[in-house]
């Protein structure tokens, strides 16, 4: 029998949910597209999208929302996503595809909101993590339906406060790159980048800061999609895909050396 959210989790999800809803409303108000992805449960991604595209409440704002196919969501979203978009993930915290998608999305400038069912994802695996329910066996949906209904309802409340839809302190720095002892964006450590295009020994790379040219002369041939460690405009190392799955996530400011 399904329990309430409070019974389900030792830490209440409502404050993280509130911050996620405000971020979502801000991205949408600024013209961003909402993507939804649920690699193991495609119906949840579709439900999120229809919730925002065709609201059940008459007069509610219709939002540009797209469910990303469960098959290769990284490959689908890469050409679709633009900086300022937002992706809502509905997935178990142990879902490797969801982990990869959230980490790649950060490089594409896409804010990630992870509605986590079952295991919580590692700290920093997404910009916003809302841990809904620890035991997926107790309820087939993991109460995810309740989670994304609340996300929609709270984001609608945000639209009633247009003055607060400009970027603000609590949703644009919390839970993002500047947590941890040594923030990669503030120190001289390497930063993660995804190769977008290669021309000779220069690659255009997507990073959390934007798109930037990177000198790849130290490395062998690179291809679009490769992950590289960037320092002072130079690509130092090609990183394996598993780098996105390390416990110390790239979003938490920790990079492999």
């Amino acid at each position: 029998m399904p329990g309430t959210l409070e019974e389900a989790s030792t830490e209440e999800p409502f404050e993280p949910l509130a911050r996620a809803a405000l971020t979502l409303a801000r991205r949408v108000a600024a013209g961003g597209t909402l993507f939804s992805a649920a690699p193991a449960w495609p119906w949840h991604a579709q439900h999120v999208a229809v919730e925002f595209v065709h609201p059940v409440v008459v007069g509610a704002r219709a939002v540009d929302a797209v469910a990303v196919p469960a098959e290769d969501p990284v490959g689908w979203l890469r050409p679709l996503a633009r900086r300022g978009d937002v992706v809502v993930l509905v997935a178990d915290g142990a879902d490797r595809t969801a982990r990869r998608l959230a980490a790649r999305a950060a490089l594409w400038g896409v804010t990630s909101i992870w509605l986590a069912v079952g295991e919580p994802p590692p700290v920093g695996a997404a910009h916003h993590v809302v841990h809904l329910y620890p035991d997926p066996a107790a309820s087939f949906s993991g109460r995810a339906v309740l989670g994304y209904h609340l996300l929609w309802e709270l984001s609608q409340l945000c639209f009633e406060h247009p003055g607060l839809l400009a970027p603000g302190p609590s949703t644009d720095t919390a839970e993002t790159a500047c947590v941890g002892d040594h923030c990669v964006t503030c120190s001289d450590e390497g930063r993660l980048g995804e190769v977008l295009a290669v021309a000779g020994t220069t690659a255009r790379c997507a990073t959390e800061r934007g798109e930037e040219p990177v000198d790849t002369g130290l490395l062998g041939p690179l291809a679009p999609g490769d992950l590289v460690l960037i320092h002072a405009g130079v690509a130092l190392q090609v990183l394996p895909e598993e780098a996105l799955l390390r416990e110390e996530s790239v979003l938490a400011g920790e990079l492999p050396r």
Binding site: P2, L17, L157, C158
Partner: peptide, 27 residues
């Protein structure tokens, strides 16, 4: 309110909690 982000976030969290409780009761 248009400058009170903390107030909005607190109201959102309270609204979410109330809706989740209503959901559990109705279920």
């Amino acid at each position: 309110a248009e400058r009170d982000e903390a107030g909005l976030l607190a109201a959102l969290a309270a609204s979410g909690r109330a809706k989740a409780e209503a959901s559990a009761t109705i279920t």
